[in-house]
Measured scan of single mutants.
Amino acid sequence: MTTFKLIINGKTLKGEITIEAVDAAEAEKIFKQYANDNGIDGEWTYDDATKTDTVTE
């Protein structure tokens, strides 16, 4: 398992969460579901060097 981080730069929700996932694709799926569940819809970027997804509304 690898640690992945999501940075949220939303209009109403800001912060970050960290998860353990098998790979980047699994982490992205989990993060996008989390964002959807919390009403966050924005531009996504991924930095492989830091294993960090960022969503900005």
Results as ranks from 00 to 15, higher is better:
M1S: 07
M1P: 05
M1N: 04
M1E: 02
M1Q: 06
M1A: 04
M1W: 11
T2L: 14
T2Q: 12
T2F: 14
T2N: 07
T3C: 15
T3Q: 10
T3Y: 12
T3D: 01
T3H: 05
F4A: 01
F4V: 03
F4L: 02
F4K: 01
F4W: 10
K5R: 11
K5D: 01
K5A: 02
L6S: 00
L6E: 01
L6I: 08
L6M: 08
L6W: 12
L6A: 01
I7H: 02
I7C: 13
I7G: 00
I7Q: 02
I7P: 00
I7W: 06
I7T: 01
I7Y: 07
I7N: 01
I8H: 00
I8F: 11
I8T: 01
N9E: 05
N9G: 03
N9D: 07
N9R: 12
N9P: 02
G10R: 03
G10I: 13
G10F: 14
K11E: 08
K11S: 10
K11F: 13
K11N: 11
K11P: 07
K11V: 13
T12V: 11
T12F: 14
L13K: 05
L13P: 01
L13Q: 06
L13M: 11
L13A: 05
K14F: 10
K14D: 04
K14I: 11
K14L: 08
K14Q: 10
K14P: 05
G15W: 15
G15V: 15
E16N: 05
E16C: 15
E16G: 04
E16Y: 13
I17F: 12
I17W: 12
I17D: 00
I17M: 07
I17Y: 10
T18M: 09
T18L: 10
T18R: 07
T18C: 14
I19S: 00
I19L: 06
I19A: 01
I19W: 06
I19V: 09
I19G: 00
E20F: 14
E20T: 11
E20M: 14
E20S: 10
E20R: 13
E20W: 15
A21K: 03
A21T: 03
A21I: 07
A21V: 08
A21F: 12
A21Q: 04
A21W: 14
V22D: 02
V22W: 13
V22H: 11
V22M: 12
V22R: 13
V22A: 10
D23Q: 03
D23W: 14
A24K: 13
A24I: 13
A24W: 15
A24Y: 15
A24R: 15
A25G: 06
A25S: 09
A25M: 10
A25R: 11
A25I: 10
A25T: 09
E26M: 11
E26D: 07
E26I: 05
E26W: 08
A27G: 01
A27I: 05
E28W: 14
E28N: 11
K29E: 05
K29I: 09
K29G: 04
I30V: 08
I30E: 01
I30S: 03
I30H: 03
I30Q: 03
I30G: 01
I30P: 00
F31Y: 01
F31W: 07
F31D: 00
F31K: 00
F31V: 01
F31T: 00
F31A: 01
F31H: 00
K32Y: 05
K32C: 13
K32I: 06
K32N: 05
K32E: 01
K32F: 04
K32G: 02
Q33K: 12
Q33L: 09
Y34A: 00
Y34M: 06
A35N: 02
A35D: 03
A35I: 12
A35P: 00
A35M: 13
A35K: 02
A35Q: 03
N36V: 13
N36Y: 14
D37S: 09
D37E: 12
D37L: 09
D37A: 12
D37Q: 09
N38E: 04
N38R: 12
G39Q: 04
G39K: 05
G39S: 06
G39N: 09
G39A: 06
G39H: 08
G39T: 03
I40P: 01
I40E: 02
I40H: 02
I40W: 07
I40T: 01
D41N: 13
D41A: 11
D41K: 12
D41C: 15
D41R: 12
D41E: 13
G42I: 09
G42P: 04
G42Q: 04
G42F: 10
G42T: 05
E43D: 10
E43A: 09
E43M: 12
E43I: 13
E43S: 09
E43Y: 12
E43G: 04
E43P: 04
E43T: 12
E43K: 09
W44H: 02
W44V: 02
W44G: 01
W44I: 03
T45P: 03
T45D: 06
T45C: 14
T45K: 06
T45V: 10
T45N: 07
T45H: 12
Y46H: 11
Y46F: 11
Y46P: 02
Y46I: 09
Y46E: 02
Y46A: 02
Y46N: 03
D47T: 09
D47A: 07
D48L: 12
D48Q: 10
D48F: 12
D48A: 13
D48K: 09
A49T: 10
A49N: 09
A49D: 10
A49P: 06
T50R: 05
T50D: 04
T50A: 07
T50C: 14
T50K: 06
T50M: 08
T50V: 05
K51H: 11
K51P: 04
K51G: 08
T52Q: 06
T52A: 05
T52L: 04
D53M: 15
D53F: 15
D53H: 15
D53V: 15
T54W: 08
T54V: 08
T54A: 05
T54C: 13
V55E: 05
V55H: 04
V55C: 10
T56M: 06
T56F: 07
T56D: 05
T56E: 07
E57L: 12
E57W: 09
E57G: 04
E57K: 04
E57I: 13
